[in-house]
Design a protein around this nucleic acid. Structure first.
Ligand SMILES: NC(=O)c1ccc[n+]([C@@H]2O[C@H](COP(=O)([O-])OP(=O)(O)OC[C@H]3O[C@@H](n4cnc5c(N)ncnc54)[C@H](O)[C@@H]3O)[C@@H](O)[C@H]2O)c1
Ligand SMILES: NC(=O)c1ccc[n+]([C@@H]2O[C@H](COP(=O)([O-])OP(=O)(O)OC[C@H]3O[C@@H](n4cnc5c(N)ncnc54)[C@H](O)[C@@H]3O)[C@@H](O)[C@H]2O)c1
Lengths: 216, 216
DNA sequence: GAGGGAATGTGAAACAAGTCACGACTTCTT
DNA sequence: AAGAAGTCGTGACTTGTTTCACATTCCCTC
């Protein structure tokens, strides 16, 4: 499963979904070819970086021509497993959780939130954005074959719930709580700490006032 | 304003708010001292990295002892300007925007969302989480001294609104839309692309199955 | 007030990512 | 059919970040 691909830099891997989305847009617009320069303007990534990123997968383009949009799209669809849907659960149907359920990431995406869990009887039994909300006590019973969880519970609950998720066989957690959770090595956690993002933006504004420099 | 501090690596700067939050927790728990090792376990950052990060600010600790929690807290409070509140506006009071208004990042934070803007008459005039929602037509008139904006409008509106924000004097944008917006060089944009985050987590799970390796 | 133990601060090395710049090849034009 | 223009793929370089490892320093106990 991670054959030749396991030499792809993490930084590159993180950009792949972004590339995919823009290539998809181009395809929908009927564009037939695209250069790294054009793509660069659209996604705000240096064109040399884009060429380098693509080159990890072999020669996807043609010199003097650019990249064939349809070919690129097919290639990334395969590479990003766009054809198999990953089932996701969401724990904590509060402010943030509800927003995610309503959105559900299905635009052009291979992930689907299949169910939510919450402790509050107000939430349990409802359907939000077409997603059923179960009681947290049923976590282990219902989770089954979802391998990814979105964690939007109060931070005091985060570690506790994370442990239950791990026991239930979850392999990846997208953690929106400010708590830094501890999990076994085989589980991957990505933290998205919105308060930190906001604070660090403010810090950069104050201490790195970019005046004619780089945008990012 | 960016005196000695302007040599601090960006990677370090991004971790500062995180450190601050945990040091604050320790202080609330009544802890008097802390070692880089302990801190490392709490924030999941290598202890050498923590020491290196702190060392950019001079010698904050004592060899053989560790760091004095109160001293550290005071130091970071000053460094992160925790005593002056940065005013923030939020554009697009939909699913995500509403969640942010209800939360408002004020836990132990120097940022406050002062007002929201939306195009829908359903939203305008309301107060959500104590924050008044104005009509988008009033953007230029009301913005005044907010320097940071959170962008949670539909992606098709993002570029357009961003341009208006820039004209109105905004310096930093936290962009939650999937659109990559174009702004002048003096404006800083941080993209938080939740769909990409989820997709890239899935990609990592499939292609970098960590079995006894690093957690991240 | 001397010795042991602990943890910092930091050179130096290792690693990772981004950028430059150019040869090679493709397509387009005339 | 040949030359011009365009764009890729990549070796070499640059920049940025993390990690190692240890001499140094400070606390604390006896
Ligand atoms: N809302 C935001 O804008 C925002 C921003 C940054 C971070 N966060 C973080 O995201 C998390 C969720 O925030 P929120 O604003 O949605 O909070 P919230 O209080 O609105 O939602 C939390 C939900 O979790 C449920 N819950 C509580 N204990 C539970 C348990 N043991 N098992 C299952 N469900 C449980 C509650 O019933 C509630 O519905 C928090 O950790 C918060 O710090 C939120
Ligand atoms: N909700 C999520 O979980 C989620 C996840 C990932 C990305 N996003 C992105 O975040 C953005 C917002 O998502 P959402 O789910 O909150 O959408 P939403 O449709 O619920 O909210 C958008 C809000 O913007 C308002 N709006 C529309 N045009 C406007 C204008 N010109 N000026 C001011 N306000 C305007 C609408 O009235 C609405 O209230 C979208 O770009 C979406 O792609 C959302």
């Amino acid at each position: 499963m991670n054959n030749e691909q396991n030499k792809i830099p993490q930084a590159t891997a993180k950009r792949l979904p972004l590339y995919y989305r823009f290539i998809n847009n181009l395809h929908l617009q009927g564009k037939l070819r695209v250069s790294s320069k054009e793509l660069s303007e659209a996604v705000k990534v240096d064109s040399a970086t884009i060429r380098r990123d693509f080159s990890y997968f072999g020669a996807l383009g043609k010199k003097g021509y650019g990249y064939n949009v349809e070919y690129l799209l097919k290639f990334f669809r395969k590479t990003l497993d766009q054809d198999e849907v990953t089932k996701v659960s969401l724990i904590g149907v509060g402010n943030l959780g509800t927003a995610f359920l309503n959105y559900n990431f299905m635009k052009n995406n291979n992930t689907k939130i299949e169910m939510g869990f919450d402790a509050s009887t107000e939430k349990v039994g409802k359907e939000i954005g077409g997603v059923p909300v179960h009681h947290i006590d049923e976590l282990e019973a219902k989770l089954e074959d979802t391998t990814v969880a979105i964690l939007t519970v109060p931070s005091s609950e985060a570690q506790n719930i994370a442990e239950r998720l791990v026991k239930a066989g979850i392999l990846g957690i997208l953690n929106f709580t400010p708590a830094r959770i501890t999990v076994p090595d085989h589980v991957r956690v990505h933290h998205i700490d919105l308060a930190v993002e906001l604070q660090s933006l403010v810090y950069f504004l104050k201490h790195y006032p970019l005046d004619e420099e780089e945008t990012e």
